[in-house]
Computed example of a mutant assay.
Amino acid sequence: MALTVSQLVSGYGKLQVLFGVSVEVPRRSVVSIVGPNGAGKTTTLLTVMGVVKPWGGVVALEGRDVTKAPPHEKVELGLALVPEGRRLFTDMTVEENLLMGAYSRRARASMHDSLELVYSLFPRLRERRRQKAGTMSGGEQQMLAIGRALMSRPRVLMIDEPSAGLAPKVAGELFQTIARLRDEMSVVLVEQNVAAAFEISDYVYVIEGGRVAASGTPEELGRDDGVRRIYLGV
């Protein structure tokens, strides 16, 4: 497995949010985490990344226990997170933002190859590489946020709500690019657009109340009447 999360428990202050979440991410796959607002999806990603400290459980990257490793060490080992809201350096150019993603030792060695990969996936970023990030459209900024994470040469890329605030056509193009990433790495996708996530995913976890309520392939979950009614609206 590229990433294994076992019985993860965490929260904020005295507020417990996760109650034993377990997720497995095979190599070169897209695994989605879906569920209602406040279910614990973002907290799962933040805890796996180490931004939120785990209270219990194990996070293993390529079989290596990284549960207590700080975020910068996890980046060096091949884990990356595209946070919700993009969090770009708006006064810096596209290319300057991308190069900021290649700060780790491993990433610096492959910086030029990584830049070409990002530009091949997102040709618009090449066209606008001298433009300040803050002047770009929402869709272009989301491309840049993903591109910056790719510059770290991740083995596992986690993306939180990439379609938020995007027009349907732009979001559709973005999902197709995310699907292509499985040729290079594993992807963990948190997404409110459940139908779109199902289309590109190899496996899906449904989180509710800080626990895994259901899991399976998109086809298996699509046959579950409860999942279809609550999450797919059919």
Results as ranks from 00 to 15, higher is better:
residue 77 L to R: 13
residue 33 I to V: 14
residue 206 V to Y: 02
residue 139 G to W: 03
residue 77 L to Q: 15
residue 52 V to F: 04
residue 101 G to P: 08
residue 25 V to E: 08
residue 172 G to H: 03
residue 212 V to T: 08
residue 42 T to P: 03
residue 12 Y to D: 09
residue 37 N to E: 07
residue 6 S to G: 05
residue 27 R to W: 04
residue 40 G to A: 07
residue 73 E to T: 04
residue 120 S to C: 13
residue 194 V to D: 08
residue 135 T to K: 15
residue 129 R to M: 15
residue 159 I to Q: 09
residue 10 S to D: 00
residue 101 G to L: 06
residue 78 G to P: 11
residue 25 V to H: 09
residue 74 K to F: 01
residue 107 A to S: 15
residue 94 V to K: 14
residue 64 R to Q: 13
residue 37 N to P: 05
residue 111 M to D: 01
residue 141 Q to R: 11
residue 122 F to D: 04
residue 69 A to I: 08
residue 165 G to H: 03
residue 152 S to R: 04
residue 7 Q to A: 14
residue 69 A to E: 04
residue 110 S to V: 15
residue 172 G to I: 07
residue 8 L to A: 04
residue 34 V to S: 01
residue 219 E to M: 05
residue 58 V to A: 14
residue 153 R to S: 12
residue 100 M to V: 12
residue 182 R to I: 02
residue 66 V to T: 02
residue 19 F to V: 05
residue 56 G to C: 01
residue 173 E to C: 06
residue 63 G to D: 15
residue 135 T to H: 11
residue 181 L to E: 00
residue 223 R to T: 09
residue 190 V to E: 03
residue 18 L to V: 05
residue 195 A to K: 14
residue 67 T to F: 09
residue 83 P to A: 11
residue 96 E to L: 13
residue 126 R to Y: 13
residue 64 R to I: 12
residue 89 F to D: 02
residue 140 E to S: 10
residue 113 D to R: 15
residue 120 S to P: 08
residue 216 G to K: 09
residue 126 R to P: 06
residue 204 V to R: 05
residue 228 R to S: 12
residue 91 D to M: 12
residue 61 L to T: 03
residue 23 V to C: 15
residue 31 V to N: 13
residue 69 A to W: 06
residue 101 G to N: 09
residue 96 E to D: 15
residue 17 V to F: 04
residue 184 E to Y: 10
residue 19 F to R: 15
residue 207 I to Y: 01
residue 213 A to W: 10
residue 79 L to Y: 06
residue 115 L to W: 04
residue 129 R to Y: 11
residue 26 P to I: 11
residue 46 L to C: 06
residue 163 S to Q: 07
residue 165 G to I: 10
residue 25 V to Q: 02
residue 222 G to V: 12
residue 200 I to C: 00
residue 129 R to A: 12
residue 188 V to H: 00
residue 50 G to A: 10
residue 88 L to E: 05
residue 163 S to V: 02
residue 1 M to N: 08
residue 134 G to H: 07
residue 38 G to R: 06
residue 224 D to K: 07
residue 179 A to I: 07
residue 4 T to D: 06
residue 129 R to W: 13
residue 170 V to Q: 08
residue 146 I to R: 10
residue 15 L to M: 13
residue 29 S to N: 01
residue 52 V to Y: 05
residue 97 N to V: 12
residue 37 N to I: 01
residue 23 V to P: 07
residue 122 F to T: 09
residue 78 G to E: 09
residue 118 V to R: 05
residue 219 E to I: 12
residue 225 D to V: 08
residue 218 P to L: 03
residue 80 A to K: 04
residue 179 A to S: 15
residue 168 P to A: 03
residue 203 Y to D: 10
residue 113 D to Q: 15
residue 23 V to F: 01
residue 56 G to W: 13
residue 93 T to C: 05
residue 15 L to K: 14
residue 226 G to R: 04
residue 170 V to N: 02
residue 79 L to D: 10
residue 38 G to L: 02
residue 232 L to N: 10
residue 208 E to Y: 02
residue 99 L to H: 08
residue 76 E to A: 12
residue 231 Y to T: 01
residue 87 R to L: 13
residue 218 P to K: 01
residue 128 R to N: 06
residue 223 R to L: 08
residue 64 R to F: 02
residue 95 E to W: 15
residue 104 S to Y: 03
residue 1 M to E: 11
residue 62 E to C: 14
residue 220 E to I: 14
residue 219 E to P: 11
residue 96 E to W: 12
residue 126 R to I: 13
residue 186 S to E: 06
residue 191 E to P: 13
